[in-house]
Simulated scan of single mutants.
Amino acid sequence: MTPLQIRMLYMLGLSVSLMGPFNVLAAPNEESKLKLTPEICITGDENQACEIHVELQWQLAKNELVCILSDNNAYPKWCSESLEQHTMTLSVSTQSDIHFVLVSKETNQTLAGAKLKITSTSQPQVRRRYRNPWSLF
């Protein structure tokens, strides 16, 4: 076999292996999704905790039991007990953003994620400079 033929076979093998995973992936409408309602909580002050009820809704590519994890220690791992359950309501009190992750209960594989953003309406105090920056005096 010539080096050119080897390179052609290698390129052919590489292109087949690249196409392989795309055939295995689920169609876009079949992928798992996690929806958080509402997605933003607005507080009056940046030191004030956001207190809100949020609803997590999920759609799965295949029907399976799931768990919801968060990066906030105040909200421990929660797992579904029924295949028919696709929503969860949670009372949240926090000063920082919370990222929720939907994982498969059986395989612990990450399926989807959603983030609750905390925003304050207060503007940080900025000192105004009375001199113009270009002034020579």
Rank of each mutant, 00 (worst) to 15 (best):
N29T: 11
I40A: 01
P3F: 10
S17H: 07
I40W: 03
N29I: 11
K33I: 06
E39H: 02
E31L: 13
V16N: 10
P21H: 02
F22R: 11
K33P: 02
L12A: 12
L34E: 00
Q5F: 09
M11G: 11
K33G: 04
A26S: 10
K33V: 05
T37M: 04
P21D: 03
R7A: 07
F22P: 04
P28W: 02
E30L: 08
L9R: 08
P3L: 10
P28R: 02
Y10I: 14
P3K: 14
S15I: 15
L25D: 05
N29G: 09
L4G: 06
Q5P: 03
Y10V: 13
P38H: 01
L4S: 10
Y10F: 15
S15P: 04
L34P: 00
S32G: 02
L36N: 01
T2W: 03
L18A: 06
I40C: 00
E31W: 09
N29Q: 14
E39I: 05
T37G: 02
L9T: 04
V16E: 08
K33T: 08
E39V: 04
A27S: 08
N23T: 12
Q5A: 11
T2D: 11
A26F: 07
S32H: 02
T37Q: 06
L12Y: 11
E39T: 05
P28L: 03
L9K: 10
M11C: 15
L18W: 09
L14H: 09
P21F: 01
P21Y: 03
R7C: 07
L25H: 06
A26E: 09
C41T: 01
F22K: 07
M19Y: 10
L25E: 08
F22V: 09
N23I: 10
G13E: 05
G13S: 07
S17Q: 11
I6C: 05
L18E: 05
G13L: 09
E31P: 03
A26Y: 06
L18N: 05
E39F: 01
P21A: 03
M8G: 04
V16P: 04
I40S: 00
P3Y: 14
A26C: 06
F22G: 10
K33Y: 03
